[in-house]
């Protein structure tokens, strides 16, 4: 009798753990795949060489001394979108971090510099392509 109960409990327990594990694996696999699909984004914008700093949803284009840099617009503190610049400082509106135009932290709470993004520029058509 005891053996039967033990076996039944063992089975139910095992099945439950298996179910949870299986669901978790499926969940993780599905989300991981979906994230990969959605994460590959390419942005193409007209490039304005006269504008020292221009803000886009995902990135900031900085042109200084004929050198272009594309920085992520996500503050490295908590991801807030940086939307303004004042006195050559990029300002995070959410928690007050500020960065220089190279993306280096000037004032925290952010600790890391803004991520530099890869980009391509077609000088003839003045088209800037940024890959996220």
């Amino acid at each position: 009798m005891n053996k039967e109960v033990h076996t039944r409990r063992y089975f139910i327990k095992s099945a439950f753990i298996g179910l949870i594990t299986g669901t978790a694996v499926l969940w993780g696999s599905m989300v991981g795949r979906q994230k990969t699909i959605n994460s590959k984004k390419k942005f193409t914008i007209p490039y304005n060489p006269n504008q020292e700093v221009s803000f886009n949803d995902e990135f900031i284009v900085v042109t200084r001394d004929n050198k272009i840099q594309v920085l992520s617009s996500r503050c490295t503190h908590l991801g807030c979108k940086i939307v303004s610049e004042s006195d050559s400082k990029l300002l995070c509106p959410c928690h007050g971090s500020s960065f220089d135009l190279e993306g280096n932290v000037l004032i925290g709470p952010a600790l890391r510099p803004l991520e530099k993004l890869d980009f391509e520029i077609d000088r003839n058509s003045s088209i800037l392509t940024v890959q996220l």
């Binding site: 503190h77 908590l78 959410c94 928690h95 007050g96 925290g108 709470p109 952010a110 600790l111």
Partner: peptide, 11 residues
């Protein structure tokens, strides 16, 4: 909480 986050360099 936003104020707390302002003071936390490590969220």
């Amino acid at each position: 909480f936003q104020e707390v986050l302002h003071w936390l360099t490590m969220p």
